[in-house]
Design a protein around this nucleic acid. Sequence first.
DNA 1: GTTTTTGCAAAGCTTTTGCAATCCG
DNA 2: CGGATTGCAAAAGCTTTGCAAAAAC
Lengths: 152, 152
Amino acid sequence: MARNRQPAPTPLNEVALIGRLTQQRTIVVEALIQANGFVSAQALHGQLAADSSPVGLSTVYRTLTALADAGRADLVRDASGERLFRYRPGPDHRHYLICTECGLSRPVDSGPVEDWADNIAQASGFANVRHTVELAGVCPDCGRRHAAAEPL
Amino acid sequence: MARNRQPAPTPLNEVALIGRLTQQRTIVVEALIQANGFVSAQALHGQLAADSSPVGLSTVYRTLTALADAGRADLVRDASGERLFRYRPGPDHRHYLICTECGLSRPVDSGPVEDWADNIAQASGFANVRHTVELAGVCPDCGRRHAAAEPL
DNA sequence: GTTTTTGCAAAGCTTTTGCAATCCG
DNA sequence: CGGATTGCAAAAGCTTTGCAAAAAC
C-alpha cells in the first residue's frame, strides 16, 4: 500500500489548485489552515490585517470561494447568515459540532446521518441529494464560563 | 356557491400568538400557509403586491420572524443565503427534502437524526445543542425533465 | 509580453432599524 | 385615548463586481 504523505500545512499545493501562485493566496490559505476551524472571510481578513499581512477583502473572498469550489474547504453558514470556511485536508465529507460562543469546532461521527440521508434519497426517488447537517451548542468551557459569569 | 375556504389552519390563531390582530399580519400568515412550502420574505412580499394585498416588506419580515420565534414557522437558508420560511402547523420539529429545481418540499422521517443529534450532544458535553439538517435534491419529476441533460 | 490577480471603491442583496403616521383594543 | 404596528426610506451587514495597476509566468 502506498504510504500517504502526512498533510503538513503546505498551502502551496492548495494554491496551485486554484490558479497562479501568488503571495496573497498563500497567505490566505495559510491562515485558513492555521485557523484550524471555521472562520469567516471577514474574520480572516481582519486577522491578516492585524498580523501585518494585509490582503484585500475581495481577495480573501475570492480565494476562499475558489478553495471551496475546488473542494478543499467546507462551507457552512452561521446563525446570522455569515459564511464560515474551514480547511479540509482530506476528500471526505465531515460534519461538525460548533460552539456558538468561541467557535471551537469538533468533527462528529456522521456515519448514521450519512446512512440516513442515503436511505431518504433512495426512498424518495430524488436524485443528486446533498445534505447539510450542522450541530451547534455551547462547549463545556464556555458553558462553565457562562455559569460563573451570569448568575440568573 | 363559494363558501369559506377548505379547512385550513386559521391564521387568526397564529396572529394572536404574536401580538395584535392586524390585517397585515393576517394577510402575511395566510399567504405563508397557502404557500404550502418554503418561501422567502421577498417572494411573499412580491406575491402579495401582485395580489393587490400590498404589505410593507418590513412588516412581512417582522411577521415571519415573529412567527418563527413563536415556533410556528420553520426557517432554513437556501444556497444563496436567503431565509426561507415555512408554516408549521404542529409544535414538532421537522426536516424536509427540498427539490432544488421546483422548490417542492416533503417532510422526511428525521427520527434517526434526532436520536443521533441527541447522542452527540450527550457525548460531547456541549450544552444547548441545536441542529440544522437540510436535504436537497432533484425530485423525480424534475429529474425526468432533465434526464439527458446532466452527464456525471 | 500576455494573462491573471489584486485592491479599492462602488454596487447588490437580503435584512434591520428609525420614526412619524396609523390602527387596534 | 395609549400603546402597538405599519411603512417608507435609510442604514447595516456580508458578498460580489468593475476596472486600472501590479504581479506572475
